[in-house]
Design a protein around this nucleic acid. Structure first.
Lengths: 196, 196
DNA sequence: CCTACCGATCGGTAGG
DNA sequence: CCTACCGATCGGTAGG
């Protein structure tokens, strides 16, 4: 039974979304054709439309799934009411975890959101802006507490978010350093430059 | 005379490259049509081909121009034989400067290189890998010197390169913080987390 | 899920 | 630099 659960990838729609994410990451959304995606799955292009409404819809599914995962986790972190440094480390570790475990989806959400159509584009950007503001608020609290250096919280958040995105390049180096070392080194670099 | 120099943007080919960079950044390479680019310049699509050989060639010009600028500057920095921390700060400031001054081109080189065709794709990736290795060597020297903490130099370089890329999101915040503050805060965050 | 097909748009060329 | 046009490919639909 465990085997069946491990093998199945959910509905056909889920398969299309996953294969779509893998192709969109490798070639970009606009440069990937529905025929290519269909080939990759093993059906004709027209058959895809029994499970999804349009090519755009695949991109929407990917982007909003990723946004939702990050928002949900941030909700949890905010509820904890721990120190700012604890919450920030939790968030950094979650970002790294998401990047390593759902690489294609996160990559596509980071790079191809520009190809979303309205109103999805505006909605996505709003969500991202809100997420960023909530991170800034956490850093701000840490500055008030005296946990962090007095730098612009905006700049600190930009650096942290970008640093975790650097794992996009990680595939090449996977062999040389193990994940635990990587996460610890990253947290050290990012936080010890921020904590007093 | 100064006015003429300020107005002219070089050859028509340069205009095409610049307008191309602006459009490729906003919409992506694959999602930008030659008719759109031509409209933007104020000619018919077919007229573009008097100045450039193909759509791909525009992307090549952008990516290799950017790669060259970074390589040339790194050559200068390596010649200086200063402390590792001095050279690293110089490099960080140069990256920030490039990002702020030639935003479209750097953005496109960072995001759309995937759309390059062979042999340009391989060549570009090789250049990037070499550039990264040279930065790692600088950090490594700093660790040997005792200037830097003992973290994986690879991880440090990934964080630094990603952090300077975060300026891609900077446009939105330009009004709130001035550039000098930004650069200083960024250098502080990145280096004080790295220096003993 | 497939065959057959649509109108639109693409990058690019010929010829002046 | 433009008009006129090309073959190829695109996302998507009809109908079974």
């Amino acid at each position: 039974m465990a085997k069946i659960k491990a093998v199945k990838n959910g509905t056909k729609k889920d398969v299309i979304t996953q294969k779509g994410a893998a192709l969109f990451r490798k070639k970009g959304f606009a440069a990937t054709s529905m025929r290519e995606l269909a080939d990759n799955i093993g059906v004709e292009a027209s058959s895809l439309y029994n499970h999804i409404g349009s090519k755009s819809e695949i991109l929407q599914n990917i982007c909003f799934k990723v946004a939702n995962d990050f928002n949900m986790h941030l909700n949890d972190v905010e509820k904890k009411q721990e120190s700012a440094i604890f919450r920030l480390e939790d968030l950094i570790r979650f970002h790294i975890h998401m990047m390593l475990d759902t690489y294609d989806e996160v990559y596509v959400a980071n790079h191809e959101w520009r190809q979303l159509e309205e109103p999805y584009l505006s909605n996505f950007l709003n969500q991202r802006k809100t997420y960023e503001s909530r991170l800034i608020e956490i850093v701000n609290q840490g500055i008030m507490n005296g946990e962090f250096k007095k730098i612009h919280p905006h700049v600190a958040v930009l650096i942290i978010l970008s640093a975790v995105r650097s794992l996009e390049f990680w595939q090449r180096h996977k062999k040389n350093i193990n994940t635990t070392d990587l996460v610890n080194d990253m947290v050290t670099h990012l936080l010890n430059g921020l904590t007093k």
